[in-house]
Amino acid sequence: MSSEIVTAYQHVIDGFKYADGMTGNVLSQYLYHRLEGAADYVTNGAWKKILEKTAAKLKGKTIEAEPNLALVDEILKRTELQTDENLTELWARLLANALQGKNSVRREYFDILEKLNSYDVLVLNAAMDERYIDFLKEVKTQGHSVLIKGKILSAAYKFLKENYNLGDLDEIELSALKLSGLEVFTSESKRTAFSLTLLGRGLKKALF
């Protein structure tokens, strides 16, 4: 292996060292084998970005259970060509939690993330943010007339634009429609006022 590859590999492994003692060095041996076979992805491709994000998220964390290497391997396979900043952030969260042995990580969530684009992620992040959830609750307490519902949507759109850089209403609605089709948002989710299904709440738990 070239010195560049060794350096990149070592940078990643440094973030996982805490887990080695808990797994009898199985984790580092596995990663070495996995990354050595795809060194270009680590030094130049999507994995470099995802693994750097994952290493940062793992720093100082504790192991809840033995890392699920089957899930780790599948995440790596599904992300070897993924370079979008918003999507790599979500994949890195799942990977970090899988490496911590969290049982909230499910394969169903991998299928969902593979179908999302960058704008979908922004909408999803807003829907999962407690600030947005609390904002909708506060606005909804004002009443339930058609006029008030219109005000809710208008206020929600303003909030999304100011806090999440979501300024294109058509794109917001398209993303919300997609997320409803993936059963992450409820069918009652309309325009800028959306809510999570049981599956969506499970995904949120796996990501945070």
Rank of each mutant, 00 (worst) to 15 (best):
I172D: 04
V184S: 13
E183Y: 12
S187W: 08
K178W: 09
S195L: 07
G167T: 03
A176G: 14
G167Q: 00
G167W: 02
D170Q: 14
L174A: 14
E183G: 07
A176Y: 00
E188A: 13
E173D: 09
E183S: 14
L174D: 14
S187K: 09
D168Y: 01
I172H: 09
K178R: 15
A193C: 06
E183D: 12
T192W: 01
L179Q: 05
G181M: 03
F194N: 06
G167F: 00
I172K: 03
V184G: 11
L169A: 11
K190R: 08
L177C: 12
L177H: 11
L179R: 07
L166H: 00
T186R: 13
L169F: 03
E171W: 04
S189N: 04
K178T: 05
T186W: 11
I172C: 02
K178N: 10
G181I: 06
A176I: 10
K178P: 04
A176F: 02
R191H: 11
S195A: 09
K190G: 03
S189M: 05
F185A: 15
L196T: 04
F185H: 09
L179P: 15
G181H: 08
L179M: 11
S180A: 14
D168L: 00
D170G: 05
F194E: 00
D168G: 01
I172W: 07
K190Y: 13
T186C: 11
D170L: 08
L166R: 00
S195V: 03
I172P: 01
G167K: 00
L196Y: 02
V184Y: 07
L169K: 07
T186F: 10
D168H: 00
S189V: 10
L182R: 09
R191Q: 12
E188W: 07
L169D: 03
A193M: 02
L174Q: 14
R191F: 08
T192F: 07
L177Q: 14
D168R: 02
S189D: 10
D168V: 00
L166S: 00
T192Q: 10
T186N: 09
I172F: 02
K190L: 12
L174V: 15
V184D: 08
S189Q: 03
S195Y: 07
E188G: 06
F194K: 01
S175L: 07
S180E: 15
